[in-house]
Computed example of a mutant assay.
Amino acid sequence: MEVTPQPGNDQATHWNGPAGLAWVETQAVLDALFEPFEALLVEAASAKSGGRVLDVGCGTGSTTLAVARRLGAAGRCVGIDISEPMIAMARARAEREGSPARFICADAQDHAFEAAGFDRIVSRFGVMFFADPVRAFANLRRAASDAAELRCIAWRSPSDNPFMTTAERAAAPLLPNLPARRPNAPGQFAFADRQRVDAILHESGWAGIEIRPIDVDCTMPEAGLVDYLNRLGPVGLMLREVDDATRKQVVETIRAAFAPYVHGSEVRFTAACWMVEARAAMV
């Protein structure tokens, strides 16, 4: 299934290009890195509270598949993502596993979901990329049954997450065209402002909103750090466009900047996030 980016849809272009391919290429590392967040979402899934679950921004499918395993035959789990390369990998993983999980390649902001088709909506770092978040969460509300539960995890601010901005800060003198992050723009830190997130959810038909900080310890193998830096984030994408000498210099510079996070064979850091919970307002 090919996805044709709509005019002006920067996220479709982004995630169906090098960014999406980078996530596919580093899928195993990222799944291990973010497994603690996946566990927080899976623990809340239960057939007793309704076995129809939608995973928004499901990427390569790790959380969707984990929820499907938790629910078993009593559940129905669907993942949606705008990235065709990532959805292709998610479908292949489901086929290998024999999972009943289903995957949709579409923009959750506008996709025509079955009305009231889900009892729970979850997302692991997948809801910060909408061009119009109020419109997106209103669409998800229409997909939710009355009193359905929403549980999403999103990053707090860049200043709360120095690990996630170390590469950009270190590389900036060597990559003068490195794009600056824009507050509230679609991207990793779009939901940094708790009051803004609360307003988005209220306006789009959600109630009982609770947004609380969580700090989660994450680890990855030190042996995978350079590959991680080479492929992911704004720096990783820009490194695809520079000459070999510049790439070598940048990688050496940013690798040195990550020294405080390296402990023997492991890279360790604390991820500062929001746990966002709400329920579908009754209509």
Rank of each mutant, 00 (worst) to 15 (best):
D107Q: 08
T63D: 01
S99R: 01
G126C: 08
R102A: 15
A108M: 01
L65F: 07
C105K: 00
G126H: 09
R70I: 01
S83L: 13
F137R: 09
V127W: 07
V78D: 06
T63F: 01
E114C: 01
G57R: 03
G117Q: 11
I87Q: 04
I87E: 02
D119W: 00
D119F: 00
L54E: 08
R135E: 12
A116W: 03
I104Y: 08
R96E: 12
G117Y: 04
R102G: 07
A73F: 09
A112R: 09
L54T: 09
G98P: 04
S83W: 07
A115R: 14
F113K: 07
V127K: 10
F125P: 00
F113N: 02
T63P: 00
D119P: 10
G75T: 04
R102M: 12
S83P: 13
V78Y: 12
E95S: 12
F118E: 04
G98E: 09
R93P: 04
R69K: 14
E97M: 10
D132L: 08
P133L: 03
A68N: 01
A88I: 01
G117N: 07
V127T: 15
M89G: 02
S83T: 07
F113W: 13
T60A: 15
D107T: 09
P100M: 11
V53H: 09
V67T: 04
R70N: 03
V122F: 00
C77E: 07
E95H: 13
L65R: 14
